[in-house]
Design a protein around this nucleic acid. Structure first.
Lengths: 210, 210
DNA sequence: GCAGATTACGTGCAGGCTGTATGGACATCA
DNA sequence: TGATGTCCATACAGCCTGCACGTAATCTGC
């Protein structure tokens, strides 16, 4: 019985979806503090009563919007990378480039990189990311280690470092006067960083027991 | 003396300082949105009238607080690094460790890394950082290139990537269940990242212990 | 050293925004 | 069919920010 959708549940889900869609749009355009709940519900075609019935508070709605955007971004990156992923190393390089491409839209940057940490807190922010962007990076790094392209090492710390670098790179591109040139610059710098990391230093660590 | 400091200017500076000090403390403790102007002026021993005379709005006061904290952090890192800086490479490594040490205080993390980007916007945030943390990294990287320890390349992109990685590392340490262990983990990962970057390709890297 | 101008600050007010309490409409179930 | 719970609309209270206006202290020109 996939989705028992009683009429109540159906209606609930519809208004939830309408609210999240409207919130996504508006928060992305003008930031969390820049848009009030009244405007959101008007755009969604419901009232504030519905909002506070479906969500604990404004931040809870923002949380749902962030999840939706994260999921879509990860989806887009994954497909874009899978198209050119021969081996884990190329996947990392392609992933970095796709990341910069996608965050060219300044709306994503606003909601995911600028407001989310402050509104949701870092813990919750990365908790959401763990199911999406951070998870993809971690998996790819593990694949690279398994393939012998990367020295065996703890992947979680490295994944976070790379994600931090990627976030900053995306923000630079998004705010650059010449986004095209900056994107190329950042991609080159990222490539150098990854190359230094991936270069097997004389020894091929084939495998190690976990 | 050089500063004629009329009584007006003197008094202005005093209230400004009192406001910035109080704001720093409170914003660091409970975040930008979590503390109102009334509480700040009470802690500073002035009234809201004084605040809005000295600063354009609440965000402007926050800006001043961020500047103060940034300056102090950079100062602390600089002295801590200069104590052990033999060459640019060691300066980078020492700087990274000092960064993690100092951001162990969760209050710095709150005001500088979580709230600042959202409240001030990324442009203004990095504009402040350019005079402090980002500037130090850039200078050190240029020194490393001049010393031949790093391949000649654009430093600004690389400096941003490293700062992004450092910020994320600091946030991880600040929120870890076991900060000591996490700090060691992140320091190790950062060291690997820097080593791969600094190793000039072509010269055999003298062995590094597995 | 005094009158007017400027600076620094105190206070009351209006507008907006969030969260909650209350009531009604509709679906589900006995 | 009546009872009950879900979903939602609306009115209200509280808080907070920014501004207008008033006041006292300081500076300037004579």
């Amino acid at each position: 019985m996939e989705s028992t959708s009683s009429k109540h549940a159906q209606r609930s889900q519809a208004t939830r979806a309408a609210l999240v869609t409207a919130a996504r749009q508006l928060f992305a355009e003008r930031g969390y503090a820049g848009v009030g709940t009244e405007e959101i519900v008007r755009a969604a075609g419901v009232t504030r009563g519905a909002l506070y019935h479906q969500f604990r508070d404004k931040a809870d709605l923002f949380d749902a919007a962030v999840q939706a955007v994260e999921a879509e971004v990860t989806q887009r990156i994954a497909t874009q990378v899978l198209a050119t992923a021969a081996d884990p190393v190329q996947a990392l390089q392609a992933g970095a480039r796709a990341f910069l491409d996608i965050f060219a839209e300044p709306e994503l940057e606003r909601i995911l990189l600028l407001d989310a940490p402050g509104v949701l807190g870092w813990q919750r922010w990365r908790e959401i990311g763990a199911d999406h962007g951070l998870g993809v990076i971690t998996a790819t790094l593990e694949a690279a280690i398994a393939a012998g392209a990367l020295a065996s090492q703890p992947v979680r710390p490295l994944a976070h470092l790379l994600l931090g670098a990627l976030d900053e790179a995306a923000l630079m591109v998004a705010h650059a006067e010449d986004p095209e040139a900056t994107r190329a610059e950042m991609a080159a710098a990222l490539e150098r960083l990854l190359e230094g990391l991936l270069a097997p230093r004389g020894t091929e660590t084939s495998d190690s027991a976990p």
